[in-house]
Every structure is written in C-alpha cells, then in structure tokens.
Simulated assay, not measured.
Amino acid sequence: MPVFKVPFNGYSVKFSPFYESQLAVATAQNFGILGNGRLHVLQLSPSPANPGQPIIELSSFDTADGVYDCCWSESHDSLIVAAVADGSVKLYDLSLPPTANPIRSLQEHTREVHSVDYNVVRKDSFLSSSWDDTVKLWTVDRPSSVRTFKEHAYCVYSTAWNPRHADVFASASGDCTARIWDVREPASTMILPAHEFEILSCDWNKYDDCVIATASVDKSIKVWDVRSFRVPVAVLNGHGYAVRKVKFSPHRGSVIASCSYDMTVCLWDYMVEDALIGRYDHHTEFTVGVDMSVHVEGLLASTGWDELVYVWQHGMDPRAP
C-alpha cells in the first residue's frame, strides 16, 4: 500500500474532492510546539513512469509556523485552505507558482488555528476554529471574516459544516461541549454536553443530516441525533487514549473512521452490536489525521507524528508493499 515520508510531523490529511488520486497533508516541525510547517500536495501514482514510487509530491508550501489542518475548496480544484499555528488562515493555489503563494493570508485569530472546513453545499465559504475559543466564517473573495462565533469557553478544536444545510455547522471544544450553529441566527441553536472531557473532533453523518459524532479525550466516540440529544445513539469504546479525529464515511451512512493517540486508526459501524469493524496499527507515533476518499469506497488515508502518510484500502494491511 502507498506510503510517503514527510520531513515534519503529520497533522492532517485530506483527499481532493475533485481528483481521486490527489491528497493534501498538513505538517508541523517538532510536534507542532515550535518551528516551521509545510503543506504537501501528493499524487497517488500508478503511472508506468513511477512504478517504484506509488506516491509522488506534486508541490509543497513552507510556512514559518506549523500547519495543523487543511481543506480543499469545493469550487476550485486547485485551491487549498491551511490552518496555521501563528493564528493565520492561508489560501494556496496549486495552479500558480510557489512564489505566488499563499494567495491570501488571513490574520484575525489571536491563537493557533486548529481546524478549517469548506462549505460543501454553498461551496463559497469556509470555517476556521482556534485556540482563541472562537470560530470564524470566511468567503474566498473577502479579506476579512464575515462573522466570528464566540460562545465556547475554551479552545475550539474542530468545526464541520452540515452536508445538507448550507447555513448549519457544528463545533467541538475543550469546554466539553459541542455546539450546533446556524449562521443566520445570533447565537448557537443547540449545546450538546457531549463528554466530561475535552472534545477534539466532530463530524456529520453524510446520509442523515441530524446525526453527528463527537470524539473526546475520554477515549470514546459518541453518536448523537440532534432531534433527541439527551442520550447518545451509540457510544463507541475501543481506543486506548484520546480520540483525535472522527470522520463519517461518504459511502456508508453508519460507518465512521477515527484516529487516536493510541497510534491506531479504527473503523466502526455504529448501527451494529460489535461496532469495531477494523483496527489498523501501522503508525508508530500519535495518529492525528484520517480521511476517507469520496471517489473510491473504502480508500483511507492517515498521517501521524511518525512523519508518514499511508493510503490503503479497508481490509488491506497499510504496510503491505
């Protein structure tokens, strides 16, 4: 299975929504504590020209601080948004030479930017969340944010747009809550006291716009129906340490991928009794980035502090040649 070595610690990996063979990887030097960052754009290469090199680097962009997350534009196949540790949100255009990048550096957050997410419905806006306890809404054509969402009492680690409603998103915070927002409303529309410890990630079900998953330092993933959120629909236990990222499958409504500080990637089906359907222990350090391809069912990618990016098919060994 394809593997790629990056010079810094991996933080996030995202498949392109346009090309099944492209993915972006966010990395940070010295475990993101101090030092530079780099955004990589990689290509899965089945071409005869590179038979011994299954992943090639198309381009990379250096930053003065670590890159904690990235997301692809849903409207321009060459545009990538990066969340940077200096509090900036940077936009890169792959169709332009490296010297012309970043095409924009948005400097409003006062602490590290931890996540970015592009609106999949309206396709013209994106969110950033930060350790300054806020979420900001941006559009590609504006040099300043459209709105700042201030309610969380601690770092906002993750935001996720609803896959069906253009104005609705969720946020996950170290204040142990997840919040549901509608950008047309003055305040959050729902507060989920989802865990008793910090919530590091959240994601919406791609087939049921009322179902959301949260992942926490408490080692669990919880699945919620926002129509009746007093008790979770499912609680997924199996990770040995904090769950860093959670991602719903774009192909199967009940399938979730997760990665953890226990160095594993897990696959779950929250609708069945034995929910854990796959565990991969190919990383040798904290596993902090995971994604599933929208183009190829069952194709997974992960990255971690071992400076490796893996791409593999569910059911296969990521380390297999």
Rank of each mutant, 00 (worst) to 15 (best):
A100M: 13
P250G: 09
D132N: 07
E196K: 14
A242K: 11
Y92L: 05
H314S: 13
G37I: 07
H282L: 01
G298Y: 15
R184Y: 12
V272G: 06
P143N: 05
S302Y: 13
Q53P: 05
Y310L: 02
A172N: 05
E74I: 00
E57I: 01
C259W: 12
D93N: 14
E273F: 11
Y11I: 00
Y11Q: 05
Q43N: 15
D167Y: 14
L127I: 03
S216W: 12
V272P: 07
S59M: 11
S95K: 08
S47G: 12
S45V: 03
I221M: 08
E196Y: 15
Y280K: 02
V89A: 00
D291H: 11
P318H: 03
I191D: 08
P48K: 09
D77S: 07
H282Y: 13
S201V: 01
P97A: 04
I103V: 14
C259Y: 14
D182V: 10
T139H: 07
W131L: 05
V183Q: 08
M1E: 15
S173V: 03
V290N: 03
S130D: 01
F126N: 00
S173A: 04
A215E: 02
H251S: 09
H76Q: 08
T139D: 07
I180F: 06
W131E: 05
H195E: 02
S302M: 02
R111L: 02
R184K: 11
F248I: 06
S216G: 02
P232D: 09
V217Q: 12
S73F: 12
H76W: 15
R104F: 06
D269V: 02
A194V: 00
S12N: 10
T134H: 08
L299Y: 12
N30W: 15
D208N: 09
R111H: 12
D274Q: 10
Y280D: 00
Q22V: 14
D133A: 02
T264D: 10
R184A: 00
S60C: 11
Y280P: 02
V265W: 09
T134W: 10
I256G: 04
G315R: 11
W72Y: 15
Y270S: 03
M190F: 14
V246A: 01
V25M: 07
G240K: 08
H165V: 04
V223Q: 00
E57Y: 11
V217E: 09
V41R: 06
E74Y: 13
H314A: 09
V41H: 12
P143R: 07
D124S: 07
T27M: 04
G298S: 08
M316S: 15
M263D: 13
G66C: 03
G240T: 05
S144P: 08
D141Y: 14
S125T: 08
W72T: 06
I256C: 13
G37F: 11
Y118Q: 01
D124Y: 14
E196M: 10
C176S: 06
D218N: 01
S171N: 01
L96Y: 13
E185T: 14
G304D: 03
D77M: 05
Y241C: 10
S129K: 05
A215I: 06
W72C: 03
G32M: 04
V183E: 04
Y92G: 01
G174Q: 10
A166Q: 13
W161H: 02
H165A: 02
S45Y: 11
